[in-house]
Design a protein around this nucleic acid. Structure first.
Lengths: 128, 128, 128, 128
DNA sequence: GTGGTCTAGACCACG
DNA sequence: GTGGTCTAGACCACA
């Protein structure tokens, strides 16, 4: 069973998108693998304190993207292959880096300072 | 008069937030300074092609944060000091780096790979 | 404005699918054309007596299929070209005929009787 | 013993309805006659790979319609007469033809084209 | 007013 | 218990 313990509400972006991204990152990280069972809608709903309909919406979109499969009465399963993983990985990384670089450039931050900031933040998250 | 020529619609995040962030980044970069005049609401509305209500909301929130001051009948002015600037700078940088670091760690990316990705993205944005 | 006056609840199939099919048939018939405005969610909701969320779901899927386009604050518009129309037409016709032929064959109906039944039903619907 | 060998999952319609329709069509076709034994619930469940509860529901509804009779401990039997057969036949045919005619009329298909499509589909199913 | 997200809770189909 | 649809109604972002 996939764990959603580390799932946290973040920014103001739609919850169903946050769920999708959480799953996508888990797939890229390898903590979510082909054949894994997703938690049921109701269970995840209670787990992270979100309405079942919102979970349903996220699951439906994951299904549309071919990331999970749902059969009525049975648990939903992850269905991915290496090709899909690489596609997701590239897409997520591009989004992350691009938004940071754009933002920092607008603030007049130098590349060196940016890299230093990242490195610091990386270390701080390890032993907070 | 502060220039909004380089203002671009980006992601799907709310426009009023994008405007606020644009001003905040300009302040950090030094292109927006204490005493500068903000464009009038209706002028900015036409300038960047956004509904006046949305502009109004952004200005209102900038006022609430003490970043601008609107005197009735007169133009809105930027009112910041070095302390505020540093606070904004820290806040923006923290938000940017933290979201990237968190996201990449969740994906199991190594610090070295992350730094390399940032560096590449930085260079690519310079000569696209 | 597209008319939903002739929209009727039919079988037990999901309402959002019935809405989608209604729109698709209208497109094939030419009563719904490129550039036409869709009724707003709330308005259609009241019109055909269905919850706004159900309408929203149908519209969202029509959007995913590239049949309509929605921009926040503005009305949703139909966006189709001749290629899409032909694709929809073939798909709908194939589904209709195939299900009827399969069903009738299982009942041991002869082709001639089937054609006669269709012809009769066709005429009866004209002057009921 | 009635054969369910030619039973196939079709569209997305509920399985219990598909079972009911299969029996009804068999009755109309004459392959299922008065007095025939239905397979036991658990046997049919294994036969067509469907959950026993679903079978139970279908049998229950067939009982309610007076099409089969279940005596406790004994096998379920088909109990129909000519009158019932004609009623079922009319009902099924009407449903099939009406839905097709309605759909095609909404698409602006001419009667001639409709008949031609049916004829083609009929022939194609014979030698696929 | 329009599009979009979310909550709360019900009901059905399926295993 | 699980997946899926639907209702009723609220709130936000946008024009």
């Amino acid at each position: 069973m996939i764990s959603f313990d580390s799932f946290l509400m973040e920014d103001g972006s739609p919850i169903y998108l946050q769920i999708i991204h959480f799953v996508q990152r888990g797939i890229v990280a390898g903590t979510i693998a082909d054949g894994d069972e997703m938690p049921s809608r109701r269970m995840l709903s209670a787990w992270i304190g979100v309405n079942p309909n919102t979970i349903q919406k996220a699951y439906r979109m994951l299904e549309d993207e071919g990331i999970i499969e749902s059969r009525s009465g049975a648990k939903s399963c992850v269905t991915i292959d290496e090709t899909k993983i690489q596609r997701i990985r590239s897409s997520l990384l591009a989004k992350d880096t691009q938004s940071l670089v754009t933002s920092m450039k607008q603030m007049g931050i130098s590349k060196e300072e940016a890299l230093a900031l990242i490195e610091t933040a990386w270390r701080e998250e390890e032993q907070p």
